[in-house]
C-alpha cells in the first residue's frame, strides 16, 4: 500500500449552496474523525470565483483548502472534475476522500474511485475510525434491516459517499483560519466529451417535505391507493406533508418526490405520524431528526413501532379515519 498524507479530504459540492449542506456536514464529521487519526481536515474546490466557498468551508472546519479556480471551470462538470480530482489525489495521496451523495456526487465519486483504483461505499449512515486507524463505513446492506461495516484495507484513499442530513454541520466560526493551496489548472485539460447545452434551475417539484413541521407517512400497510388517499386528507387537516415508503412509491400510490428514506428525502418534523410502515433501515435512516413519532401498525414488533414515542397497535386505516374525525372536532373554532 502506498504511503498517504495524513489528510481527510471532503469534496466541496457547493452547487445549491443554501439548500445543499452536505459538504458542511461532512466537514463536521471529518473534524471528529481527524481527532482519532491525527489528520488534517481538507476541503477541495473546483470552479470559477469560488473564494466565498473557500471561506465558508474554513469557517466550518476545514484546516486546508485545495482550490482549482479558473475561467474554464465555470460549468459544474462531472468529467472535468473527475480528471482534476484524479490528478490531485495522485499528487497529494489523501488517506480518505468523502463526497456528498448529491446527484452530482453520486456520478462523480465512483468515477474518481475507478480512476485511482480504490473502493467506494455508497450512502454511509455512519463513519468511524477503528483500532487500526481504518475508516469503518457503515452502510445499509442486503435490502433489509441490516447494516454492514465496510472497510477498504489496502487501497487509498478510503472513499465514501454520504447523503445530506446524516451528519450535522458545525456552527459557523468567524475566527477560524485555514491554509489555502491554489493549484493551477493543467495546461491541457481533456476536451469535455459530454457537453452541457443548457442548465436551468428547477425549483423542487413539491412543497418542501424536508422542512415540514408535520409529516404524515404511509407504507404498504395502508393497503391500497384508494385508502392511501386518506393520508392526504389527514395531512391537509394538520397542515403537514405526506411522505411514503418505497413500495408505496413503486406502486404509484404516491409520487417519487414523497419518498422518505435513504433513497429519498430526509425529514425533521416536530411530529411524524407513521401508518402501516415496517421501519426498514433505508426508511428510518431519514427519521433520526423527527422529534415526536406516533406509529400505527398491526404488528407491535415492527421496528417502526419500537422507535416510536407512541406505538398504536391497530389498523392503520381505521386510525387514520378516526384521527381525521377527532382533529376536526378538536380544532377550536
Amino acid at each position: 500500500m502506498k504511503k498517504t498524507a495524513k489528510e481527510i479530504w471532503v469534496f466541496g459540492d457547493y452547487r445549491n449552496y443554501f439548500r445543499n449542506r452536505v459538504t458542511l456536514q461532512l466537514l463536521a464529521k471529518s473534524v471528529e474523525l481527524a481527532k482519532k487519526t491525527g489528520s488534517q481536515v481538507c476541503a477541495v474546490i473546483f470552479g470559477n470565483g469560488v473564494q466565498e466557498y473557500v471561506n465558508e468551508y474554513i469557517a466550518h472546519g476545514a484546516e486546508k483548502v485545495y482550490v482549482i479556480d479558473h475561467d474554464s471551470l465555470h460549468e459544474y462538470h462531472v468529467e472535468t472534475y473527475v480528471v482534476l480530482m484524479e490528478m490531485i489525489v495522485r499528487k497529494y495521496q489523501p488517506e480518505m476522500l468523502l463526497v456528498g451523495a448529491t446527484c452530482f456526487g453520486r456520478e462523480f465519486a465512483p468515477r474518481v474511485a475507478k480512476r485511482v483504483h480504490t473502493g467506494l461505499t455508497a450512502d454511509c449512515v455512519d463513519l468511524e475510525i477503528n483500532g487500526d486507524g481504518l475508516l469503518v463505513q457503515t452502510a445499509p446492506a442486503f435490502g433489509g434491516n441490516l447494516l454492514a461495516k465496510i472497510i477498504t484495507p489496502h487501497h487509498r484513499p478510503q472513499m465514501a459517499t454520504v447523503r445530506a442530513g446524516v451528519f450535522k454541520e458545525l456552527p459557523h466560526d468567524y475566527h477560524a483560519s485555514g491554509k489555502v493551496i491554489p493549484i493551477p489548472v493543467p495546461k491541457r485539460l481533456p476536451e469535455n466529451r459530454v457537453r452541457l447545452i443548457r442548465s436551468k434551475h428547477e425549483p423542487p417539484r413539491t412543497n418542501r417535505i424536508e422542512d415540514a413541521k408535520i409529516v404524515v407517512c404511509g407504507g404498504r400497510g395502508m393497503g391500497s391507493k384508494q385508502k392511501f388517499k386518506k393520508l392526504f386528507a389527514l395531512a391537509e387537516l394538520l397542515g403537514g406533508e405526506v411522505g411514503a415508503t418505497r413500495p408505496v412509491v413503486y406502486s404509484g400510490w404516491a409520487d417519487d418526490d414523497s419518498l422518505i428514506g435513504q433513497a429519498g428525502r430526509q425529514i425533521k418534523p416536530l411530529l411524524l405520524l407513521s401508518f402501516g410502515i415496517s421501519g426498514a433501515i433505508q426508511h428510518t435512516a431519514a427519521l433520526s431528526d423527527a422529534k415526536f413519532i406516533i406509529a400505527v401498525n398491526k404488528n407491535p414488533e415492527a421496528p417502526m413501532m419500537k422507535m416510536a414515542d407512541v406505538a398504536i397497535v391497530a389498523d392503520a386505516n381505521q386510525v387514520c379515519s378516526a384521527l381525521i374525525r377527532e382533529i376536526r372536532e378538536r380544532i377550536r373554532s
Binding site: 461495516k149 465496510i150 421501519g279 378516526a322 377527532e326
Partner: peptide, 27 residues
C-alpha cells in the same frame, strides 16, 4: 477493494407508550 467486516441489525428502540384496544379509546 472493499471488505465487509460485520453485518448487524439496526433496530433502534425507544422507551415508548404502546397502545392497544379500541381505536376511539386509544385516540
Amino acid at each position: 477493494p472493499t471488505r465487509i467486516l460485520d453485518v448487524f441489525s439496526s433496530t433502534a428502540e425507544k422507551k415508548n407508550h404502546v397502545m392497544t384496544g379500541a381505536v376511539k379509546k386509544i385516540l
